[in-house]
Write a protein that binds this DNA or RNA. Structure first.
Lengths: 331, 331
DNA sequence: CTGAAAGCGCTAACAT
DNA sequence: ATGTTAGCGCTTTCAG
């Protein structure tokens, strides 16, 4: 593969001039630039990335570590990140931590070893994993979930507020015993959505009945099981707040198999807008999070921090939007 | 950030010994290994990836270039690739070409510049883009779509066969005027699915009616429009083969808005299994492709080729599975 | 404005 | 078994 010195020989100049010409340093004789560009093209020259990174002590790649590639919410974030990064010449490498602290740790190590310019992460488990980056001065932005230490840029949505709204909506629609199916304890979004749910009940002068709350992994299977449990008890809920779209699938399957109809028998609102929401017989009401914008905002924040590591940490909080459909309407 | 020579100094050995110890060369005195490992740990040493890549003239990263990160089919492939790669110590960088030849080209350039060990690609548009890799001897595996030149490892599914089966199933269920909504001309999967559809009709002694065929981008919006067009004509189809799951969403929305019921009014089979298929009032019949396995197979093929570039190119063809549900049953 | 040369951090001969 | 050293390809002083 052609190197910079092949190009230099072919163009009859030094490697320094080739480097300057190809990197757009203005002080190069236009005629030489033309010769260099020509030589590079005929040789099919492509710069050696590792050599450049080694010399410059920096790379033009960002790492994005998410907890589930198959969750549309996270892939939408990924698009947002990528579109912003691409526009300024950065590449993005997408890593899937799968809600596994060990995997997350390994990817962080890879990110450090490859000397990426910065990391955007939706942190899984303990914040100590991320400390590894901060110790080395690698810029980090947390997205979707805050880091325990507030000393880090974050892009969040006001998910507790959104949960409160959604629950309030179910109350207004006349549902009496509203339950909540949320993610594992310790996952901030799961806890916040539960907190918002409780606030709404309290604000309406109702007791939050702990027996109507279930936790499970953020996946269909766990939510399915949790729903079946909930409906084996005496006090069956007639309303349900579901904390993510994967869970919604498990919940809706369970309700169908029990023979309950959405809206009339049980009002349901789920987090995350999904393209199939409107295909259901009773279309699904959702809390739509601005995932694409979150990704874009996170990327911008990261780029700013890369440019200026002394900037004070910012937290950007975006709002979610409740979309009311038939699944949360009595008739 | 600590370098190898910092570790060498701290452990009281040469950098060569540190390198050997940390890379598990067996001929190092166990006591020295221990000292090195200790020094490395206390210094928080992490090897410099670019330096290593430059020296070794190889990297332990694979690039995966797919045409749509938001399509569950491709994210499932990504998981398959990643699980195999991870197990043998490779990282995977995921790139989203978005069915855009220009973006694809840019990512291929990045892959070359970063000197990735190999590329798995679901090629968009002209095959000439990929030639760039083959000219440089970068190992490539095509997945989901073949490369025009057969001189390249491929992992495909027998999608024409699957389309024929699915169409045959609609015929057997008694649907009389079966239409097809497929992707853009030139995209091999789109063309193959159409070809399989036609074969099935011919085998049943029916004319393939060109007026029942529509093409659109592999997205919901285009399929929605195409469906509306189809149902404005005299000869409305009573059966539909839909070439991917994003399109299925557009089609189902259109049918609902026209007031047609799945199964009874119009039998529908769509490519790609989706988790929400069973949530519909009339659950959706699908052609389930083994996406995860495809990713795994592609990764294995690529690793083999990296190890032995002289191996003859292989084409692995996997089978899809028709899952019959209520959307393709009259009653 | 251009060239010569040093050196980023690591690994792999080669020498001991 | 360990150390010495050259050099991967590039960018960037420093001279001229």
């Amino acid at each position: 593969m052609a190197t910079i010195s092949d190009v230099a020989t072919k163009a009859g100049v030094s490697t320094a001039t080739v480097s300057r010409a190809l990197n757009g340093v203005s002080s190069v004789d236009p005629e030489l630039v033309a010769r260099v560009v020509n030589a590079a093209r005929t040789l099919g020259y492509q710069p050696n990335g590792p050599a450049r990174s080694l010399r410059r002590q920096e790379t033009a790649v960002l790492a994005l570590i998410i907890s589930d590639v198959e969750n549309p919410f996270f892939t939408a974030i990924a698009r947002g990140v990528e579109d912003v990064a691409q526009a300024v010449g950065y590449s993005v490498v997408l890593c899937n931590s799968d809600e596994d602290t060990g995997k997350e740790r390994r990817y962080l190590d890879v990110a450090i070893q490859e000397r990426v310019a910065g990391v955007i992460i939706s942190p899984t488990g303990t914040p100590s994993n991320v400390d590894v980056l901060r110790d080395r001065g690698t810029p980090v932005v947390a997205v979707d979930r805050p880091l325990a230490e507030r000393s880090c840029d974050c892009v969040l949505v006001d998910t507790r507020d959104a949960a409160r709204h959604a629950t309030g909506h179910l109350i207004e629609e006349g549902y009496q015993r509203i339950g909540c199916i949320t993610g594992p304890a310790g996952v901030p979004t799961a806890d916040d959505r539960l907190a918002g749910y409780r606030e709404a009940l309290r604000a309406a002068g109702r007791d939050a009945d702990a027996r109507l709350v279930r936790r499970a992994e953020y996946r269909a299977a766990g939510a399915n099981k949790a729903t079946h449990e909930l409906y084996q008890e005496h006090n069956r809920p007639d309303g349900l707040l579901v904390a993510n779209s994967a869970m919604a699938i498990g919940v809706l399957e369970a309700l169908a198999s029990i023979g309950l109809r959405l809206g009339s028998d049980v009002g349901v609102v789920a987090f995350d807008d999904v393209p199939w929401a409107t295909l259901l017989d009773r279309p699904l009401s959702v809390v739509a999070q601005p995932a694409y914008d979150m990704g874009g905002a996170a990327a911008n924040l990261l780029l700013e921090r890369i440019a200026d590591s002394d900037r004070a940490p910012t937290t950007t909080t975006l709002n979610a939007r409740l979309i009311e459909r038939a699944s949360s309407t009595r008739l």
